[in-house]
Design a protein around this nucleic acid. Structure first.
Lengths: 206, 206, 206, 206
DNA sequence: TATGAATGAGGGTTCATTCAT
DNA sequence: GATGAATGAACCCTCATTCAT
């Protein structure tokens, strides 16, 4: 029974003056990443956003709905970017390298979403989980198609199972939320370059 | 205030006749993997184990303690195996390949622990979390030493950051819990072989 | 995390139609006096008040908070009355007699609070206990100042330690909750008169 | 179903080598005084005494029984002492002064018992409570008889109600547990002398 | 004489959600 | 559009006591 949250409200920023739904999503994202979905109470979210419970339930059907909306955002973003990269008219190795680097950079730029993604998926209601998984699967399939294309072209080793390669790589990506620190020694680009390089070397013909 | 759970009780099996602490740990592992730590109630655990809450709290200081014990078991197991492999007197490439394949196999054989590991770490109490992280770090360092050895020997690409490679690979390993299915098309050995192969190709000199 | 209980709600009575926080405080006072703080369950309080646990925790941060609020009420009442009496412009002997009689009367009129006071103080959380003790100390100091004034004036025996006299007398007052019965042979005024008389005789110069 | 605790066991000291029942009583007294009866668990008592729960339940029928035994000890002690003083063949004023001073000194010497006495009485089972109150009443009656004797002799003011005087004074005595500190500025004798003096002055004819 | 595993009832507290206003 | 009082169910945990050994 989710209201159409994203189109409600007026502003689009995330500061104190932003529209209420945006503020709620921003604070929820921060808190879910910080202490986990189940450990974050609705009360804490509305306090952080400076509104009351009634307001939250006016815009979102449930706490679960908030989480679903967060997943929707990051999935839409990553799908759009991947689709754009895949559609380019360049060597498949370059597109795979770019796709890999791009998902690392956006995962780091939205590290809270990354943390939430791999830790809280199973806390969604079954049907929402199904929807998210389906969308995620389409994303993986697109990524996999790059591998397959490279195998057909003779650039990538034909004995590899493309789906396993995808799971191999996205494990690494999802894991970023566990160890990456914005105040650490590595920039997002450095990690992206090296992860992309590792992936390419692992699939390319010798 | 954790009681000495692992040494208590008489039996060591996990069936209905096994010792109470073992039964509790087994059921807790299963339930935590199935529905998450926060979503599993102490009541459900004791019902599954066929005892009462009082019995659980006789052996374990808290629900948190149960989780800590689960982490301890898997960490001990993996550390022992890795140490044994690293200590061998063979080519570093072979040892890295074997270490990688082995952690994949044991992660799949203990898939419930793997699921719990990367999803519930942050639900441990801060101090227990610290202890687990410290032990995990030592494990990673041992693994990393293999990469460094290979770089010194000239087998592995010197431009790679060993710690990044470790995080890259263990992301893939932890992610197994998310997608691997025992009743799926792939055996543990198949996954282990291919993951190990991907790692080796990603680090070896061309 | 105590909500502002005393200013919440609309009514001020204590009957079934009174505001919820007031009803909760009234029933808690009665039950704490009757069977002790630790022996009174939150469930019993809310049942007596005709609400649910959630309502209690909406107004009070904890069971401990309820007790603290009860202490606050009686302390405010007694402090106000004592300050008014001390400030009068009459003979110090009269003021001491009146102060003594007054605290006896109000202790009997609020016998439940008196019972709770000396039995449940140590069941408050350490910091709340500290706060209550500090306020209680100020009350005692005001009372003591009457003794000291009488000693300076030459009405009271100079060899007495004023603080010991205060502890001596307030022991008697706190003890009222142990033996006084509203349906017994003595009126509040009779006890007040005699206690006041005993105090005056014990301190006056022969 | 209390076993005959006091006659069981061999030793009579309270150190680590003392007999088990004595050690249990000593630790229970200390803990009850420190944190209250309800807040002290049987587990804590047996741990402090260096025995197990089974041992406690071997000597005492219940936790309640322990408390009852503690009451019994202090009551027996005080009754014996008062009876001895009252029986003397001296001026009633001297005997009252001595009785008053003596109960103050023994209350301070057994301050833990004093604290427990006035705080935990109502946590005894109803029938044990009745027994304790009956014994306490006999003690008060003996004390009251001194007042009455003094009134008959013309030493004490005849208009006073002897029972009120007793309650007045024993309030002060019971209250000692609340404020007296062994490491404070006042010795037991100093307090005893002044309390006794206050009592005598309050009852004597001018 | 003493153990300690196990019970079972109840403890205080939290929380997503609803609804009259 | 928004409030916040109130619900009701579930939560983790504690504890005095029992009993087979």
């Amino acid at each position: 029974m989710a209201r159409n949250a994203t189109s409600a409200g007026g502003g689009t920023g995330t500061g104190a003056g932003a529209a209420v739904p945006e503020r709620l999503l921003a604070e929820a994202t921060r808190l879910f990443a910080e202490r986990g979905y189940d450990r974050t109470s609705v009360q804490e979210i509305v306090e952080a956003a400076g509104v009351t419970k009634g307001a939250l339930y006016h815009y979102f059907g449930s706490k679960d709905d908030l989480l679903h909306e967060i997943y929707g955002r990051v999935l839409r973003l990553q799908t759009e970017r991947l689709d754009a990269i895949v559609a380019r008219d360049t060597d498949v190795r370059g597109r795979l390298a770019e796709a890999a680097a791009d998902v690392v950079v956006t995962s780091i730029q939205n590290l809270d979403d990354t943390k939430i993604f791999f830790r809280s998926m199973h806390q969604l209601s079954p049907e929402k989980q199904k929807a998210v998984r389906a969308e995620r699967r389409r994303y993986h399939e697109t990524f996999r198609s790059l591998i397959e294309e490279g195998q057909r072209d003779g650039h990538f080793r034909p004995e590899l199972r493309p789906d396993l390669v995808v799971d191999f790589f996205f494990g690494s990506v999802h894991h970023l939320g566990t160890w990456y620190r914005a105040d650490g020694p590595l920039s997002a680009d450095q990690v992206a370059t090296e992860f992309s390089d590792l992936l390419l070397h692992s699939v390319q013909r010798p």
